[in-house]
């Protein structure tokens, strides 16, 4: 599950804007396989956490109604250029990934 996250964090004034794209199937558990008629089990990201200097700045709680290959953007204050930002996600099957980026 390496490299599922693309992230960009940019400082402007005192505000850091974070934009992230995650590649994930985000299966709702409602769709059926058109050949077998079997329901495709739900498989979606439940939580995305962003940390800056050991402090959580944003926690996203997601249901299956977030689109496939999710996009997420948010802003926060109090960071400086070059600071490290960590973003990680966990899905309903316990799979996860994380990434570190430097604020530009």
């Amino acid at each position: 599950m390496a490299n599922t996250i693309k992230i960009r964090a940019r400082l402007s004034g005192d505000t850091t804007t974070v934009k992230a794209l995650i590649s994930h199937i985000m299966e709702t558990g409602l769709r059926k396989n058109s050949k077998t008629g079997e329901t495709i089990p739900a498989h979606f990201i439940q939580e995305v956490v962003c940390e800056h200097k050991g402090e959580t700045v944003m926690t996203a709680q997601w249901g299956p109604a977030i689109s496939k290959n999710p996009y997420l953007s948010f802003r926060f204050k109090g960071a400086e250029k070059g600071d490290t930002l960590t973003l990680r996600w966990v899905d309903n099957k316990g799979e996860s990934d994380s990434i570190e980026t430097k604020i530009a």
Partner: peptide, 18 residues
């Protein structure tokens, strides 16, 4: 979806929904 924001976060989120 729900977004829990720390005091440092601004009142802004963007995503894509179904």
């Amino acid at each position: 979806s729900a977004y829990i924001l720390s005091p440092r976060a601004e009142g802004f989120v963007a995503t894509r929904i179904k």
